[in-house]
């Protein structure tokens, strides 16, 4: 059986290619039908709120990649509640159905996976 991977996305979509390159790992793994979950934490939560406009900075829209995740079979999505709260995003509308995790739920999530990659 394929090993499961937890991908931890910690980069803002506005900090260069980091966020995109992390999502590319998820999409590539999804294409191989590998069991992959994503955890958005720290500045990675800035990828989630709706209404952001990449065109203002002449950038490609990351939300297209985010929306592609479920199409690639990557629909096990989590967000660190504390990271949202610290950034004032607790009530923000998010573009993906992510499960908020707090406290002991975070280490419990990590413990479930065979592999972990943080980007």
């Amino acid at each position: 059986m394929a090993k499961s991977l937890l991908l931890i996305c910690r980069q803002s979509p506005w900090a260069g290619t980091a966020a995109r390159e992390a999502l590319d790992i998820a999409l590539a793994g999804g294409a191989f039908e590998l069991p992959i979950a994503l955890l958005f934490m720290d500045d990675g939560v800035f990828q989630l709120p709706v209404g952001q406009q990449a065109t203002a900075l002449e950038q490609k829209d990351l939300s297209a990649n985010l929306q592609a995740l479920p199409l690639f079979g990557v629909d096990d999505l989590y967000v660190c509640q504390a990271s949202l709260a610290r950034r004032g995003l607790t009530d923000a509308t998010l573009s993906l159905p992510v499960t908020p995790l707090h406290g002991a739920e975070l280490p419990a999530l990590l413990a479930r996976f065979d592999l972990v990659m943080t980007l």
Partner: peptide
């Protein structure tokens, strides 16, 4: 491609 990273990890 990135598939090689996944393959190696597997």
């Amino acid at each position: 491609g990135l598939g090689q990273l996944h393959e190696a990890a597997q």
